[in-house]
């Protein structure tokens, strides 16, 4: 069930566009801000609010990597592994962070604390190797600094 606040926001988003479907992606992100992910039920509900078949909501949601259709951990760590970061040591950072969390990129810690994602260029190559923790960007990072950052997450 979506909260009233989310429903209101989706209604407002809808008003920004001449066609309701344009509000779909912002709406799904809004749901995710509150619930951490977009569940099948939420997809159906967003579809109802925007007058879209759930099939359409699902196909769109599945296309975008930052719409989570499975629940992630409480914190999401996006570690850039693209070329500029790789040249600056992203592989070592990744290994160290994986060790610190005890998981591989693409996984969530068993306690549901952190999901680690290896991602493409974050357009922050001036801070390579860099990483986004939830909504905060960090970099350049040594493996140790990166490990400390993820260890500090509650």
């Amino acid at each position: 069930m979506l909260s009233e606040a989310v429903k209101r926001d989706i209604e407002a988003l809808r008003g920004r566009y001449p066609v309701a479907q344009s509000a779909l992606i912002p709406a799904l992100l809004r749901v995710q801000e509150e619930q951490g992910w977009v569940s099948p039920e939420a997809m159906a509900e967003v579809g109802r609010l925007l007058g879209l078949p759930v099939e359409v909501v699902a196909e769109v949601a599945s296309f975008y990597t930052l719409i989570f259709t499975e629940p992630p951990g409480r914190h999401v760590v996006q570690l850039c592994t693209n070329v500029s970061c790789m040249l600056s040591g992203a592989e070592a950072v990744r290994e160290r962070v994986e060790r610190a969390l005890g998981i591989r990129a693409g996984q969530t810690t068993p306690d549901g604390r952190v999901t680690l994602l290896a991602v493409e260029c974050l357009a922050a190559c001036d801070q390579a190797p860099c990483m986004i923790v939830d909504q905060q960007r960090h970099g350049p990072l040594s493996p140790e600094e990166a490990a400390r950052l993820v260890e500090e997450l509650d």
């Binding site: 099948p40 997809m43 159906a44 078949p53 099939e55 699902a58 196909e59 599945s62």
Partner: peptide, 22 residues
Amino acid sequence: DHALKGHDRGYRTHIDVPPVTQ
């Protein structure tokens, strides 16, 4: 009726029905 859709993308794209029952 939007019965079948392409899910995911790139080489992972596959045909599927939505995760909730229609």
